[in-house]
């Protein structure tokens, strides 16, 4: 956490002059489940990026690639996995209910406590 400043050292009126400085605030600690890549290949459709409420899908705009997850901020809601079209395809083809952390998925949600690098 930033050091607390005195009244002489902050802008008046409650103004915040540093736009977007919330990036310095980690919300990844909230996470109970972690998004992890599974076996199914990412097709870089960016659907997860579009629907991530926390702007926590890392992308390479130049090469148009989805790179992974911003775990500093990802809160583990699992929307990325639920909207992933590859996941949907894997589920359809499996012909059975797949657990959220099934390794066959493209984006799987793994319980933080069970996660191993």
């Amino acid at each position: 956490m930033a050091e607390l400043k005195g009244w002489r050292d902050i802008p008046i009126g409650g103004m915040i002059l540093e736009a977007g400085n919330a990036v310095e605030y980690p919300t990844g600690t909230w996470r109970a489940f972690r998004p992890v890549f599974g076996e199914a290949k990412c097709i870089h459709c960016f659907t997860c990026w579009l629907y991530c409420p926390d702007s926590s899908i890392l992308v390479d705009p130049e090469n148009e690639k989805m790179l992974g997850f911003d775990l500093e901020h990802c809160k583990g809601c699992g929307i990325c996995a639920s909207v992933c079209p590859v996941n949907a395809k894997v589920r359809r083809e499996a012909g059975e209910e797949l657990a959220r952390d099934d390794p066959r998925l493209c984006i799987r949600m793994v319980e933080e406590g069970k996660f191993q690098e």
């Binding site: 607390l4 400043k5 005195g6 009244w7 902050i10 008046i12 009126g13 409650g14 103004m15 915040i16 002059l17 736009a19």
Partner: peptide, 15 residues
């Protein structure tokens, strides 16, 4: 700039 943020016990008093 952000005007009118939520200001808790850590800074409201200073303002």
């Amino acid at each position: 700039k952000t005007y009118g943020p939520l200001d808790f016990y850590d800074y409201y008093y200073e303002h």
